[in-house]
């Protein structure tokens, strides 16, 4: 998902202004990325309250560390690296504390029938993905929920692009077996 050169320049400029304390610039960066950060987290944690808490935490942490951020072509992989670490900590904490109640995710208002069907399919996908290995789950969430490219996914996961391609292949194959086995 590499942006255009002009888009990158605009984002670099917004980052520079946000680092100097320009609230509107940070707001614009937030608008640009919040949906994908939330989508990644929601796919990984599966309930709205936790997804909202963690999304807030990602942006607060990003804001607090923005002065240390060094521009490398896009802010999104950095935000998702923060998100990935927070989700990992969150899940570790949840495992220690026991299973969490599954409060449903919501979506913006639209046709209720369509909404219900999409929710059902999403939950099915999440349930199938939850049986994959940790790395495979990360690839599915970064590539398909957050919409990152292979190169960006590799950056967030700290792996080579080839390793991500292999992981993606195995993850999709495993996902397919589980979705099929489930009878859908």
């Amino acid at each position: 998902m590499a942006g255009s050169a002009a888009g990158e320049f605009d984002e670099a400029e917004l980052v520079r202004r946000a680092q100097q304390g320009d609230a509107q610039a940070f707001g614009a960066l937030y608008d640009q990325h919040v949906d994908r950060v939330y989508a990644y987290i929601a796919h990984r944690v599966g309930n709205r309250a936790d997804a909202e808490d963690l999304t807030q935490e990602v942006f607060l942490r990003a804001l607090a560390s923005l002065s240390r951020f060094r521009w490398r072509g896009s802010l999104l992989p950095w935000l998702l690296t923060i998100a990935r670490n927070l989700v990992t900590d969150h899940q570790r904490r949840r495992r220690r504390e026991g299973a969490w109640p599954a409060a449903p995710l919501t979506a913006p208002a639209e046709d209720p029938v369509e909404l219900a069907e999409r929710r059902r399919q999403r939950e099915r996908l999440r349930a199938a993905a939850a049986e994959l290995t940790e790395l495979q789950q990360q690839v599915i969430a970064l590539r398909f929920a957050a919409g990152l490219s292979i190169a960006e996914t590799a950056r967030v996961m700290g792996r080579s692009e080839n390793a991500v391609k292999n992981l993606q292949h195995k993850a999709i194959a495993a996902l397919r077996r589980r979705l099929k086995g489930e009878g859908g």
Binding site: G27, V34, A42, E52, Q56, L60, L63, I140, F144
Partner: peptide
């Protein structure tokens, strides 16, 4: 299929509230 159904949008009220809070 995963690409079509996986992305989940945040609640618009949450989105707006968080933006306001962050700008502050």
């Amino acid at each position: 299929h995963a690409r079509a159904v996986a992305p989940e949008q945040p609640d618009p009220d949450f989105r707006r509230r968080l933006r306001y809070r962050l700008e502050g």
